[in-house]
Structures are given as C-alpha cells and as structure tokens.
C-alpha cells in the first residue's frame, strides 16, 4: 500500500466532466512526482524527467474524456500516457502506434469481464503482484526500467536468459490467474 491514498479514477472523471482544476491539482500532487521517478529510472535526466512529467499531466487533462474506469485503473492509464510520451520523446512519431492502448477507440472491450474488471482494480493488481515469488516480481519489475532488454536483465541478475524469460512468463500467468479468480469468475 502506498501511504498517500488517491482516488485517481474519480479525479480524472471530475476533470473530464467539469474541467475541475482542483481535481487536477490533487492528481498532479500524487502522480507527477511518481511519473518523474519512473522517467528517471527509465534513463531520463532529472530535468528532462520533470519536464516530461508535466507534459504527461497536461496530456492527462486533455485526454481525460477518453478515460474509461471500466477498462483501466487511473495508475495504469497514467502509466500508459507516460510510456507513450517517453517513447515519443525518444523517437518522434510513434504515438500513432500506441493510440489503441489508451483504450481511445470506441470498440468493444476485447477481454472477458472477469479479467477486465480485475485489471481495472488497482488493489487487485497489487495483491496479485504480492503473490509472485521474489524472482518473478524482480524480473517483471526490471522489465519496466532503463530500456532493459531481457538479455540485460539476465546479465544484471547473473542468470541465463531462458531463466529470465521463464520467470516473466510464469509470473505473468500467475498474475492473470490470480486476477481472474479475485475478480470472481461467474461460471
């Protein structure tokens, strides 16, 4: 659990419905500092990360009406915006590619209800991550930082590449199974 509670979904909804600047300020206070850390750990300089974190929050304001709490948690949605802007800053013109991942399209959800409602629940995702063994969660978390390729992770951990891949694969399958179970599959 993070110390500071923040109902990001409700705040984004207030921004979308009423251009609520107070809601934006609250969201900014919680997420901008974390987005900055994410970007620094992904290889940005602190000043570039700070600049980009502000751009990410600005994009959150502008795209708030696309946010669908039934498809993603606020944290996952903001993470995805940060990812896209980071990629864009590295190589221009890739944003077209990832647009579909922001759930911007009016298309029908592709996933079965259980996994979908589980994934949009940040608490369930967090509990799922706690069920992983340390090797699995380490391999999965490392995949998010510093443009790490799996070979680099393998070197850093001193284990064979195949082992890293297997840890990620089994970890991901475990997460999926846990989330589906927790979200209550009505069978």
């Amino acid at each position: 659990m993070s110390a500071a509670q923040c109902d990001g979904g409700a705040l984004i909804t207030r921004i979308a419905q009423a251009q609520d600047r107070a809601a934006f300020a609250e969201l900014f206070a919680h997420y901008a500092p974390r987005v900055k850390t994410l970007l620094v750990r992904s290889g940005s300089t602190p000043s570039a990360a700070e600049e980009l974190a502000q751009e990410v929050m600005l994009a959150v304001w502008r795209k708030a009406h696309y946010f669908d709490p039934k498809r993603a948690s606020a944290a996952a949605w903001i993470f995805t915006i940060a990812r896209n802007l980071r990629i864009d800053s590295l190589r221009r013109g890739s944003s077209a590619l990832y647009a579909v991942d922001l759930n911007l399209g009016a298309e029908e959800p592709a996933q079965p209800d259980a996994i979908l409602s589980g994934m949009q629940d940040a608490q369930i995702v967090r509990s799922a991550m706690q069920t992983l063994n340390p090797d699995q969660s380490q391999a999965i978390e490392m995949a998010f930082f510093q443009e790490q390729t799996h070979s680099q992770i393998s070197e850093a951990l001193g284990v064979p590449l195949g082992t890293v891949k297997a840890r990620i694969r089994f970890g991901m399958m475990k997460l999926r199974a846990f989330i589906e179970r927790e979200a209550g599959v009505a069978s």
Binding site: S2, K36, A49, E50, A74, I78, Q120, V125, E141
Partner: peptide, 19 residues
C-alpha cells in the same frame, strides 16, 4: 493490458521525486 496494469502498480509504488 495486464502489462499496463502492472505498470500502473509499479508507478503507484515508486518513491515520489521532488518537483
């Protein structure tokens, strides 16, 4: 999407940086 959800969890757990 599971990867993005995990990304959200990773983001949430990061130590905030001073702005």
């Amino acid at each position: 999407e599971l990867g993005q959800a995990v990304g959200g969890g990773v983001l949430e757990d990061l130590e905030p940086s001073a702005l």
